[in-house]
Design a protein around this nucleic acid. Structure first.
Length: 597
RNA sequence: GGCUCCAUAGUUCAAGGGAUAGAACGGAAGUUUCCUAAACUUUAAAUGUAGGUUCGAGUCCUACUGGGGCUACCA
């Protein structure tokens, strides 16, 4: 039981005794006490005034007196205006620390293999160009939410839906056939996704040139766009692909293979894995029969031209197309089919789509369509909508070449970390391999933390130059704290001091130590909250708070040179717990915790 | 035009309707015989405008101003 739950009960009992059962029924407002005031937890008394029929101060005092008299864990209280500040007994906190140190996986529930899973779909790239900064936010959010959801006690299935078909893929194929001279990742030494991406850009360049050419021959712009030979060729390639032409499929398969190999390398660098990868080339026909059925059931309607629609105007939305006049499906059709297929296959309890906020409308419609079709689990579909990542100059635009490439960015972060280590004299020339490994951990830690510490739903500005910062509220600062704790414990062990959960009895706990215990104690709660709100930033900021508190503690108190044995033991156990929790919190963010820096 | 999200120190981010709006970077000033100075300490600096609801509003409501997104028989 968390301390807050414990206090909820204790105070509810008190309030019931003083002011009657009814008054205790609405949840009490309990919060942690602000630093400026004495106390651990604070009860806000204003909502209780109606029941107590007394002034705020008097109400607080009554509750406080009753509480100290009847609840041994409550040591003392003070009243400031309508706020009752409660101080818990040091023995209470000593017990908490003991429990933490002796309970493996303190505060967490292991997911059961038979639980209905939470499916989390993220990344979902197109196979015509490499991943960019936007995908990085998506991938990091998806992975982190997966880990957080797991630690909150749910079974998670990570899913990637790769968009590997369509006109955009055909564009790269046509450009490669025309101008590629048989280039391959092997022959050029280029990463497959970058190679294919280059041809996608090349397509656009030639397309533009052909349009200009046609315009100079007297065509209008619209005519030129429709008649450019390279575009006609791409459309023809798509037709051949859909007709399963062997040569076309072959080339498509080869080039997609290059791209997917490239993606794998990026995922590996980011430490991201999927349990299942779906390909749209296999799923794009799903959903048609469902739409037909819905049409028969009168959920949808057909227009004169044969296209199928749903009318959502009663929900404040528009009418939405589900099947084209020629009977082919659109994005929405596929998503309907895919959702039904997944529910059948995986029996999920929840399904989270990690997709940017530009598709909020789409997912709103998807949920409503599922609901109208009579699927009760439409409520279990959740769109984790995150804000766009902008550059200081504004939006990323692929046409203007302002896109930040994922692989480039990762390399830049790692090499900057290496350079910093060099400048600070941390680089070990004896062991360059370890130094390189640490640089990678630190560079990736900086990148991941920088993205994840921001609330997903807000848009963010990413400044490539300033983001590589290793001071302040950053990943490396937290990693550094962890490394120092490891170093302290290592020295302690070398001196024959052991921290194996032997807590000193009757050891005085000072304020700063108390603060650390209280903060540690709140970790499971933070993870739960983070899972419920799908917000890794809560965990990120918690990790920073903890590291920050520990650093101050570290500078104010000696640990290894402490002469009082029981105080030293307390500090060592505390250090060990802080190290453990920091490691876990970083893990939830997908960040490694180095033991040396 | 319609729908929607957003607006907080110079900058990047915090703040479940609760106390004196927190951090960090940058600015100013300090701290290394010491367990890692990738650290710590001190300091100046903010809720777009106008109303409303409330004991109490950065948070809820209305209008305005400024910005993002959606509003495709694209995916």
């Amino acid at each position: 039981m968390s301390t807050e739950q414990f206090l909820q009960q204790a105070i509810a009992t008190t309030v019931a005794a003083l002011y009657g059962q009814q008054a205790a029924e609405s949840p009490l407002q309990i919060q942690t006490t602000r630093k400026e005031f004495k106390g651990d937890y604070t009860l806000v008394a204003f909502p209780l005034l109606r029941a107590s029929r007394k002034g705020p101060e008097q109400t607080c005092t009554e509750i406080g007196e009753h509480l100290t008299a009847n609840c041994p864990q409550v040591a003392e209280f003070n009243v400031v205006k309508g706020f009752l500040n409660i101080t818990l007994a040091p023995s209470y906190w000593a017990n908490v620390l003991t429990e933490m140190a002796t309970t493996p996986n303190y505060g967490f529930v292991e997911p059961q293999p038979n639980d209905a899973p939470t499916v989390i779909e993220f990344s979902s790239p197109n196979t015509n160009k490499p991943l960019h900064l936007g995908h990085i936010r998506n991938n990091l959010l998806g992975e982190s939410i997966s880990r957080i959801t797991e630690k909150s006690g749910k079974r998670v299935i990570r899913v990637n839906l790769v968009n590997d078909r369509g006109i955009h893929i055909c564009k790269s194929m046509v450009a490669w056939q025309r101008y590629g001279n048989g280039e391959t990742p092997q022959s050029t030494g280029k990463k497959g996704d970058h190679l294919v991406g280059d041809y996608y850009v090349k397509f656009d360049q030639h397309y533009k040139a052909e349009i200009q050419e046609l315009i100079s021959q007297g065509k209008t712009e619209d005519e030129a766009k429709a008649q450019a030979p390279i575009m006609l060729e791409a459309q023809e390639t798509l037709r051949r692909w859909e007709a399963k032409d062997a040569a076309t499929i072959d080339l498509w398969r080869t080039m997609n293979g290059w791209v997917l190999d490239g993606f794998d390398a990026t995922y590996r660098a980011m430490d991201i894995k999927f349990d299942k990868t779906y390909f749209e080339s296999n799923t794009y026909l799903l959903g048609k029969s469902v739409v037909q059925q819905g049409l028969a059931d009168g959920v949808f309607y057909r227009r004169d031209d044969g296209s199928v629609w749903i009318d959502l105007t009663s929900e404040g939305l528009d009418e939405k197309l589900l099947l084209r006049a020629d009977g082919t499906s659109v994005y929405m059709t596929q998503d309907i089919g895919t959702a039904i297929e997944r529910q059948r296959e995986l029996q999920f309890a929840h399904h989270i789509y990690v997709v940017g906020n530009e598709q909020e409308y789409h997912f709103q419609v998807l949920k409503l369509v599922m609901k109208r079709l009579g699927y009760a689990w439409s409520d279990q579909l959740y769109h984790l909508s995150y804000g766009m990542v902008n550059l200081p100059e504004g939006k990323m635009k692929s046409r203007e070449g302002t896109v930040v490439d994922a692989d480039d960015l990762i390399e830049e972060m790692v090499s900057t970390a290496a350079q910093m280590a060099q400048e600070l004299g941390k680089a070990n020339t004896q062991d360059p391999e370890t130094t390189a490994h640490i640089s990678r951990m630190v560079g990736m830690g900086a990148l991941k933390y920088f993205i994840l510490k921001v609330n997903p739903k807000s848009g963010m500005t990413f400044n490539p130059k300033e983001s590589i910062d290793f001071n302040g509220n950053t990943g490396p600062f937290i990693q550094y704290t962890h490394a120092r704790i490891c170093s302290v414990l290592e020295r302690a062990h070398a001196q024959g001091l052991h921290t194996n959960s032997q807590l000193p009895e009757h050891c005085p706990i000072a304020d700063k130590e108390l603060e650390l215990i209280q903060l540690l104690h709140r970790f499971p709660e933070t993870v739960q909250q983070s899972a419920q709100t799908h917000n890794p930033a809560l965990v990120a900021n918690y990790a920073y708070d903890l590291a920050n508190e520990y650093n101050q503690f570290y500078h104010d108190h000696s640990i290894l040179k402490e002469t009082n044995a029981s105080i030293q033991q307390l500090r060592l156990v505390l250090s060990e717990q802080v190290g453990l929790v920091i490691r876990r919190a970083l893990w939830l963010l997908g960040i490694e915790a180095p033991e040396k820096m």
